[in-house]
Write a protein that binds this DNA or RNA. Structure first.
Lengths: 344, 344
DNA sequence: TTGTAAGCGTTATCAG
DNA sequence: CTGATAACGCTTACAA
């Protein structure tokens, strides 16, 4: 069992022959304490392996020095599966939290749960970061409520006019543009699009806008019959591609709104004896780690997760400090790999 | 800014016309409170969106209902890169924590930092889970110290006799055996081994023991000259394979102590115009998500991350409750894929 | 069944 | 520069 004799600031006070507040001040390098006493106190604290009790400190200070990261997915069953893109974000968020001096509370929730109230209300965290894919129309309501309560939080997602709360996301329009532009430049004229365009997923819809923009710039007409719905996972990509194939419409390339969809689509193409990229070129979105390793390696739109994590954390921290922060889009970057070939 | 008027149990007490402890009891469904008052109190609490202040509760109760997950890596620079195997574990750990009613504090540390003291000492967490690759001889010392302090913690790693602390890990000997056995059964007789066999990495050494055991069972002599050192990353695998190739010794297969090493090795083989699996068969270890997607898909030893997360969390929770727990090995499973071909 | 009183370990305030 | 005192919001004795 744990050593029960956890030293307190009072213990140190006795040993050092000073008062408790003096100890507290000394340990925080307050200039109000003479160098002499400060050093003495700090030495004793080190000897006893004293650590400030964060619960007591937090209770007194009414703050926690903690940021909660909430990941939620609406998707299919597997509760231990976390979207790889969020996982990449996790690394940089963790790092950024550490260097900002905050602890990170991590939680993975189904969208259905009551994630509004849990963390900040219970004083578990000073601020919240939300990462999630799910029904936008659904979660924007909760966001609005949180916002009205004055919570400190950032959400990874699309930036939309008159949106409640603070959003950080990648420039999906630009990303969608880069992908389609690349295919169009390579000579493709009939480019299928796999993604969900309902209002539930404005992020994906923005990617579609980029796709449209690229077509317009190249003076190529859109073929609506080449657009098939898919939300996010590999399976969905597989099914959407099968639908596309069985529709019998001609196409030479596919733009997907996620790498997982692209991977599913490639599998479906293979199953139909079509080769990538020689028969069909494929572009993804996200640049998850797998993208580089699959065969053919996947041309895709990279979101800068490193920068994203940093911006997310910096933003909540600013909010916590009472500064006002604006929603912001991060630039994307096209990673050209094998899945597009060079059909000049 | 945040609503400053956070309701307290005292507020509710006033509104309900009862005392503060009664409120506290009612909210925890204590049977000591009459049904009538309980319902009244709970209703008011809901109306006010009251949440128990965890800092106050924790301070009073001297516990936190939180488990800290500390990931550490000795490895190369990239501080935002987290070993994918640990990331897979993260999902199931999170899930298990949630269902056990604990919050999860997440932190990523370089091995050099002072991870002994931080969490439990500061009353941030009731228990600790360590995931890490690094110099075993180095971190076992810290573990011994933590253990002596009576901390509640589990470490993912090798189970070794007379080890301080509590370890949960996969059965590395069995895993190494499965991999080598598979190759031997396929007719391979000169199987190279890529991994670190120093005392710094007992886990990898155990995998090697499995490799030896399989050779013995098949009556095949080991060729020491086919053993090359590599710790964990892709680059290391690449280099080790190059060393192997330039040694000019004959071999028809490679067993690697991690998937990342295997991926690096495959790249090196490619770069030398050798084909996998027709020229050289390759087996990995871990079954990270990429393994299934690379080409050729990687035959590898799967660690059951789902079960592992559950066991890790259950173990710390037991420790926290003062129960004694024994170190434990989880079984592994061979995932047969393309990288080994079928050289019957 | 309910209320009273005390205390968890820290830090802010104010007086010396 | 230092010390006494109070307070953060909750829960556990104990008393009624």
């Amino acid at each position: 069992m744990k050593d029960k004799n956890k030293p307190t600031s009072l213990d140190i006070a006795h040993l050092a022959g000073v008062s408790q507040p003096t100890v507290s001040r000394a340990l925080r390098d307050s200039p109000l304490v003479s160098k002499e006493t400060r050093l003495k106190v700090q030495e004793i604290a080190r000897d006893l392996n004293y650590k400030v009790d964060v619960n007591a400190r937090n209770l007194r200070a009414q703050s926690t020095n903690t940021i909660a990261l909430l990941i939620f997915e609406d998707d299919d069953g597997d509760a231990a599966f976390i979207n790889p893109f969020f996982l990449s974000l996790l690394g940089s968020i963790t790092r950024a939290c550490a260097s900002a001096g905050y602890d990170l509370l991590f939680s993975f929730q189904q969208l259905s749960q009551d994630w509004n109230a849990e963390y900040e209300d219970a004083n578990k965290a000073d601020g919240l970061i939300f990462l999630g894919y799910g029904d936008y129309t659904n979660y924007i309501k909760r966001i609005a409520k949180l916002d009205a309560q004055g919570a400190h939080f950032v959400t990874w997602g699309p930036v939309i006019k008159n949106q409640p709360g603070l959003f950080i996301g990648c420039d999906n329009v630009q990303g969608g543009f880069l992908a389609a532009d690349h295919l169009l430049k390579a000579g493709h004229r009939r480019i299928a699009f796999l993604g969900d365009l309902s209002e539930k997923n404005p992020e994906l819809e923005k990617r579609y806008q980029g796709y449209l923009k690229a077509h317009k710039e190249h003076g190529v007409a859109i073929s609506k019959e080449l657009i098939f719905s898919a939300t996010s996972g590999e399976e969905q990509g597989y099914k959407a591609a099968l639908n596309l194939l069985s529709s019998q419409h001609q196409f030479t390339a596919i733009a997907c709104t996620s790498d997982l969809i692209a991977i599913g689509a490639i599998k479906a193409l293979r199953a139909s004896n079509l080769r990538v990229p020689s028969d069909v070129a494929v572009v993804g979105f996200d640049d998850i780690p797998i993208a580089e390793h699959i065969s053919p390696s996947l041309t895709t739109v990279q979101q800068d997760t490193y920068e994203a994590g940093k911006v997310l954390v910096d933003s909540v921290v600013s909010l916590i400090k009472g500064q006002s922060v604006n929603s912001k889009l991060l630039p994307t970057r096209l990673m050209v790999r094998e899945s597009c070939g060079t059909k000049k």
